[in-house]
């Protein structure tokens, strides 16, 4: 799963969002590191819809324009949970090794 797909799924966990809402939420939860451009957002979104991880929720008119909201499907929630667990497990291994590591001059394991 790409980092962009991971953050888009994460952005939809608490509530359905429209395209621009997803862009803003992804920027927030990634501390501004992931700034989705529109072409990138829809490139990932159409794939997530195709894979059944995300589905259209409702449509609203805002400033005279149609906004389509998307929500996470049950399969999307399970997939995200599995990916989050995988990343957390990776992070735990790395953190454990880093804690155990001491420079040779300090007398620890190198």
């Amino acid at each position: 799963m790409t980092e962009q797909a991971f953050f888009i799924l994460t952005a939809l966990v608490d509530t359905p969002r429209h395209g621009y809402g997803i862009v803003g939420e992804v920027a927030d939860i990634s501390d501004g590191r992931v700034q989705l451009k529109v072409g990138t957002l829809y490139g990932v979104l159409d794939r997530l819809v195709g894979e059944g991880l995300v589905e259209p929720d409702r449509e609203e008119v805002h400033h005279g324009r149609l906004r389509r909201y998307y929500r996470l499907t049950e399969q999307g929630r399970r997939t995200l949970a599995a990916e989050a667990e995988r990343q957390a497990a990776n992070a735990r291994v790395a953190a454990k090794r880093l804690r155990a590591w001491r420079p040779a001059t300090e007398g620890g394991a190198a």
């Binding site: 395209g19 621009y20 529109v38 159409d46 805002h62 324009r65 149609l66 389509r68």
Partner: peptide, 13 residues
């Protein structure tokens, strides 16, 4: 399928 939605998202930004 996607044009109007992409335009709306772009203009929102």
């Amino acid at each position: 399928v996607w044009e109007d939605e992409m335009v709306a998202t772009f203009l929102d930004g």
